[in-house]
């Protein structure tokens, strides 16, 4: 059997938790499909430290691919460089986490390789079949990927982050890029700065819905509770649609999928597509004045109350607990 290759995404010179999850998924894939688990780190240069760090997560070989056109992630350049590596090394299975980059790149890579794709998988079975949610998580499909290579993107909540262990080797590989075929230009990234934990990594997530009524109330009502809990802030699609908060806070089928230890849903009804993004949370709390709201059907603790009264009260009660 051929080997597994993990695409190791990095941000500001570090691996986010989602990449450690990809390492774990890659190792799981290698254990079940056979072969060794390698990783690839790509960029314009200066990747030595990241490559050796990747090797310390039990990757057999870390391929370090550097090229000026890989300075920023752009689908066409990254796909071309990655496909060339896959072919040169005889890789059978490519694994990436379903982040914004993973979702953008893996289908393009699959098309370039003529390979089957399983998107956003939640598990790998002992027989090598994979499980993926469909229909907003109302269906779990078991899928068999025929032939090799094959491409898998992994749902971040479905695997635990890899732990350090073992020391693989690093191999520098020259990128082969037909620059004339690269037509996309990276113009810029406007980062949303926040001191709060990253939504997909937080231990506690507090999400608001249309019940908050406007963006101002996210700030003055919800945020004090978010910060008192040291939580990340999320939102329902309805709140994003209404323009209360930016889309990168959206939790749900078409937004981010989270599974924190505690998920507090405030003033959101619990539409099917929202539940798809949070129902694997360990403990779910719902605060809503409508006792018929579907969110109560998945909540461990439900409080039927006016959020404008309950949320500040909860913030005070949490503060008191700390002292």
């Amino acid at each position: 059997m051929g080997d597994v290759l993990v695409f190791a995404e990095h941000v500001h010179g570090k691996f986010p938790k989602t990449t450690l999850i990809a390492f774990a998924a890659g190792q799981d894939a290698a254990a079940k499909l056979g072969g060794s688990c390698h990783a690839v780190v790509m960029g314009a240069g200066g990747l030595d430290a990241l490559a050796s760090e990747a090797a310390s997560y039990g990757m057999t070989t870390v391929f370090q691919v550097e090229h000026a056109r890989l300075e920023h992630y752009v689908a066409d350049a990254y796909t071309a460089a990655l496909a060339a590596l896959v072919q040169a090394k005889g890789i059978d299975t490519i694994v990436a986490t379903a982040t914004a980059i993973g979702k953008d790149m893996t289908p393009r890579l699959a098309a370039r390789l003529g390979a089957p794709l399983a998107a956003d998988i939640t598990g790998i079975n002992a027989d090598g079949t994979v499980v993926r949610p469909m229909y907003a998580g109302n269906v779990f499909a078991t899928v068999k990927l025929e032939g090799a290579p094959r491409v898998i993107s992994v749902r971040a909540t479905a695997f635990d982050a890899a732990a350090k262990g073992g020391a693989g080797s690093v191999e520098k590989v020259a990128a082969t890029l037909d620059e004339a075929a690269l037509k996309t230009r990276f113009v810029g990234l406007e980062e949303i700065k926040s001191d709060r934990p990253v939504l997909t990594e937080a231990r506690i997530v507090v999400s608001g819905g249309r019940g908050l009524k406007n963006g101002e109330n996210f700030k003055i009502v919800l945020e004090p509770l978010v910060d008192e809990l040291g939580a990340a802030m999320g939102a329902s699609r309805a709140a994003v649609d209404a323009g209360f908060v930016p889309n990168d806070l959206q939790v749900g089928q078409t937004g981010k999928v989270v599974a924190p230890e505690l998920y507090v849903a405030v003033g959101l009804s619990g539409a099917i597509q929202h539940l798809a993004g949070m129902k694997d949370s360990k403990v779910i709390v719902a605060i809503n004045k409508d006792e018929e709201a579907p969110i109560f059907q998945v909540a461990d603790y439900g409080l039927v109350a006016d959020l404008f009264k309950a949320v500040p009260e909860m913030k005070d009660a949490v503060a008191k607990l700390k002292h």
Binding site: D76, M105, A110, A111, L117, M134, Y135, Q253, Q273
Partner: peptide
């Protein structure tokens, strides 16, 4: 919103 693969656009572009 049925298959949820998020793939066809990227594949066609490639």
């Amino acid at each position: 919103i049925d298959d949820d693969s998020n793939a066809v656009g990227q594949m066609a572009a490639e």
